[in-house]
Computed example of a mutant assay.
Amino acid sequence: MKIGLFFGSFNPIHTGHLIVANVVRQQASLDQVWFVVSPQNPFKKQKALLNEVDRLRMVELAVEDNYDLRPCNAEFSMPKPSYTVNTLAYLNDRYPQHQFYLIAGSDVLTHLHRWKNAKEILSYTPILIYPRPNVAEEKIKDEIRNHPNIKKVEAPLLDISATFIRRSIRGGLSVKYLVPDLVEEYIQSRKLYL
């Protein structure tokens, strides 16, 4: 199968993630998209993250009615912080029957060269890039912009932020329509992000 890997903290997963995953899956003719929940992203502060078990559970709830979108906890048993190159190696070893594609927003292109083993990743993994707002095109290095393994995919330009959602929850505001109903219920029942 052709599997898109959508890496993220998903703190929490929101409707923007789901829309992008579904649109990219269709545009790139992928069989499934796996939401790879990262316990610790090397570019983000750990203290701002909810524990990975709650974040994974919210992903499970968000995609439970869609076979084409799946949760993935591959990084939970790996050393932290999580590096994409290590996760790709693990998934390729574990699932040699699948062809993996990375799914990333266009903002990733401005700092992809800073990723651990970025050239190795680019050599064997196609990256499907969906549009993100306010990307500084001039910061994208030519060797990345013109790389044959980077493919731009048409998708709606969305700017839903998990930070905005967490801030809204702390402020006592509704997050209806920003997150799936089951995710909203989970957040409320466990009093998360307060």
Rank of each mutant, 00 (worst) to 15 (best):
V108Y: 03
K47G: 05
H147M: 09
K119S: 15
I144D: 08
P79E: 02
K80P: 01
V85R: 05
I169T: 08
Y124H: 15
V63P: 11
G8V: 07
N92F: 06
K47I: 09
D142I: 04
Y83V: 09
D159Q: 15
H98E: 15
V153T: 15
Q32E: 14
L18V: 00
A28R: 04
H14W: 07
D159V: 02
A155V: 02
Y177S: 05
C72R: 09
Q188K: 15
E138F: 13
N51V: 06
V153Y: 01
D142R: 09
M1A: 13
D107C: 06
V20G: 13
S161Q: 07
V37R: 10
L182H: 12
Q26C: 08
G4M: 03
C72I: 07
V53R: 04
K2V: 00
P126W: 06
L158A: 10
E138N: 12
Q40E: 15
L102T: 01
H98D: 13
R70F: 03
N149F: 10
G4R: 04
L109M: 12
N86C: 01
P79G: 01
I160Y: 01
C72M: 12
L173S: 14
K2F: 00
P148Q: 10
L158R: 08
P180L: 13
D68V: 01
K45Q: 14
S38A: 15
N73C: 09
R145V: 02
P148K: 08
E154L: 06
V36E: 03
K116Q: 15
N11S: 13
G8P: 10
H17T: 06
T15I: 13
D31H: 02
W115I: 05
G16K: 11
